[in-house]
């Protein structure tokens, strides 16, 4: 490891354990005598929303508490958020990028639209096989270690054992498979793509203080501009032929994301549906099924 501070950003959804990733690795690095810092992003986002966590690791004391804006390494735990601009925001040239995906490496590179040193792993599949839940954090830690070699797998094992006293075995297994099965570009086989212009997130233009409303009043209903569809990892698919137009799904949706089509049946508003599955569960004719969201 070089003498510099390595900055790592983790992406996932609230509730998927991104913060746990950063914490376990920080603790493991500290246990090895290194210096590390992990921090969650302190936002109001709730479970399901895309969130990030931050990790710094160094051989020397870290005198830096500002946010990580130009990461050396990015790890994405959830395949359905790969296309979000936040994931590639500010990323360094030829940074290491590890994605949980079942897509081909070349395809992911194209989707990302930036020239990174890419690694792919189908962590969801591994987690489902071993942990029986799509919680990919420990699998992704394995891939991270393989790609970066910053901490030792042994030290992370220790941390996992302390953190998950009852189910550490499956988590360690998942980590090892994440380590073994990572597919990583090497200098020899690096694919170079034409970078997309919008690959890097443009700084949103925020209003100047004079432009804020007096007393910070807000326009009614303006939250509709925020599309919560990106929170979804499962998607309700409706078989309209079985729909009896009862509207129960519409009544129970906390996100008012079901609407009536001209023929009277109900469909999902994918801009806002968070994929909670209530509609599918409550539909009296079982005409809604929750399916894996496509990347």
């Amino acid at each position: 490891m070089k003498e510099k501070i390595i900055e790592i950003r983790w992406h996932g959804r609230g509730g998927q354990g991104v913060v746990t990733c950063a914490e376990l690795l920080a603790k493991a690095a500290i246990a090895e005598g290194k210096y590390a810092q992990s921090a969650p992003s302190f936002g109001p986002e709730r479970r399901g929303a895309p969130v990030a966590a931050f990790l710094r690791i160094s051989n020397k004391p870290i005198y830096l508490r500002s946010q990580i804006t130009h990461p050396d390494i990015v790890v994405v735990l959830d395949p359905t958020i790969l296309t979000l601009p936040d994931v590639t925001a500010g990323i360094k040239k030829n940074a290491i990028f590890i994605a949980n995906t079942n897509k081909l490496l070349e395809d992911v590179k194209y989707i990302l639209g930036v020239n990174v040193n890419l690694g792919v792993i189908d962590a969801t599949k591994i987690a489902l096989e071993i942990i029986r839940r799509p919680i990919t954090n420990t699998t992704m830690i394995g891939s991270f270690i393989r790609a970066t070699n910053i901490v030792k797998i042994e030290s992370v094992k220790q941390e996992i054992m302390t953190r998950f006293p009852t189910n550490y075995e499956t988590n360690i297994k998942a980590m090892i498979r994440g380590y073994d099965e990572l597919e990583m570009e090497t200098d020899a086989n690096r694919t170079v793509i034409k970078e997309k212009k919008d690959g890097k997130k443009a700084m949103p233009k925020l209003p100047k203080w004079r432009e804020l409303t007096i007393g910070l009043t807000t326009k009614a209903g303006s939250a509709q501009a925020y599309k919560t569809g990106s929170w979804r990892s499962l998607v309700p698919v409706t078989d309209a032929t079985k729909c009896i137009k009862c509207g129960i799904c519409w009544v129970y949706c906390p996100d008012s994301a079901r609407y009536q089509t001209p023929d009277g049946t109900y469909e999902t508003n994918f801009d806002y549906c968070k994929g909670c599955g209530i509609c599918a569960r409550e539909c009296p004719t079982h005409c809604i099924t929750m399916q894996e969201e496509k990347e």
Partner: peptide, 16 residues
């Protein structure tokens, strides 16, 4: 209708 008393993230607090 208007909303009064929204919360402000670090991007807005100082301007407020």
């Amino acid at each position: 209708p208007m909303t009064f008393g929204a919360f402000a993230t670090p991007e807005y607090y100082i301007e407020a």
